[in-house]
Design a protein around this nucleic acid. Structure first.
Lengths: 193, 193
DNA sequence: TTTAAATCTTAACAGTGTCAAGTTTAATTT
DNA sequence: AAATTAAACTTGACACTGTTAAGATTTAAA
């Protein structure tokens, strides 16, 4: 049939076209009208699937977060013994590496984050930013039975996240010049903790 | 005289009005026209002083960087012995504290930075991002004569910056919930390095 | 088969950055 | 002191933006 009025897959197409634009030109140059045109659809068609531009951006972020979580979990499962503290190092490496491989995702995810992050040790995790929730659960799994106090675990969690997140931030800043191999340097630094 | 045609101070007024807007509503809601209106001047008047909106934003960032540098230097000089490694901790605390006190400045300065950062140990520092140049020079001053290799110093510099920058990033994310005292937690974490 | 709902369309609105051309004031030269 | 030039501003216009309103087309439900 030659029906071109209904796209069929517009919602996910818009998300993927949007992410393509993010990787090409960054969030600042992304416009709803461009994304719509990429999908061969009128300017206002997206409003059948998203309340606003911000709403589409949130959906795109969730799409990226899913990929991010998969990368983190691949790193974590490189050790069979899930109580080996080395899994934290692998997670950290995966964290930084994901953004080195997808530099545009870092400012996109973290400039105006779409999700809540609860740092409190006994805080509600059900709506927590998934990567952070994952870090929290792993620290608990490794150190919870090992006599570490809650306060020490909280310090560990925040410190780990700060270091790794800071490394990712530096490694992906487009104005940072560094002539050596980031991956190696990051491994060095994470190991020396 | 009743001359209101020439503003007299427009360039700096635009910068300050722009920063006021950043603090009120963030960079995303800042428009050239709003800033111009705040200064009681027409939409295109800013073009006599800045080539583009981006150009004004860069000037605003440099204005903020000056304040930032002052805060860092106040922290550094809390010890008279400038070779005491504790000055690095004071610098780190000042770094994070500056952004806790001015949360909107963090995404503003680092989302699309206006200056180059050269991480290479022997790199050219003349055009380097001033706060980073400062960190580099202090690490050199403290550890340069103390038998530390260049490679170790580079590790130290990147690691310090990553940790402190990561802490600032976390502490200022508007979606991060944390019910305790950030300043104390940051002190804990920086000291435990 | 009619009705309702979902998905799309065009037309229009106010707001944006920026250019072009002209006006007013200040500075410089004669 | 007068004339000229340059700097700092103005209005008007352009293409682009997010978003709303009202209507058209297709699919799903009754």
């Amino acid at each position: 049939m030659t029906n071109t009025y209904h796209h069929g897959n517009l919602r996910s197409s818009l998300i993927e076209a949007g992410i393509e634009l993010i990787n090409k030109e960054g969030e600042k140059k992304l416009s709803l009208r461009k994304v719509a045109k990429m999908c061969g659809v009128s300017q206002t068609a997206p409003y059948s699937h998203f309340q606003s531009k911000e709403d589409l951006l949130d959906a795109m972020k969730n799409y990226v977060i899913d990929q991010f979580m998969e990368a983190l979990e691949r790193g974590i499962h490189s050790y069979e013994n899930q109580k080996n503290p080395k899994v934290l190092i692998e997670m950290g490496k995966s964290y930084v590496l994901f953004f080195i491989q997808n530099p545009k995702y870092f400012p996109f995810l973290f400039s105006e984050p779409c999700m809540k992050v609860n740092l409190c040790i006994d805080g509600d995790d059900s709506n927590n930013f998934p990567p952070f929730q994952l870090l929290k659960s792993i620290v608990f799994r490794i150190f919870g039975d090992a006599g570490m106090t809650k306060e020490e675990m909280e310090d560990t969690i925040i410190s780990l996240w700060a270091t790794v997140h800071g490394l990712a931030s530096i490694a992906t800043m487009k104005n940072v010049y560094y002539d050596k191999d980031w991956e190696k340097k990051i491994e060095d630094i994470i190991w020396n903790k």
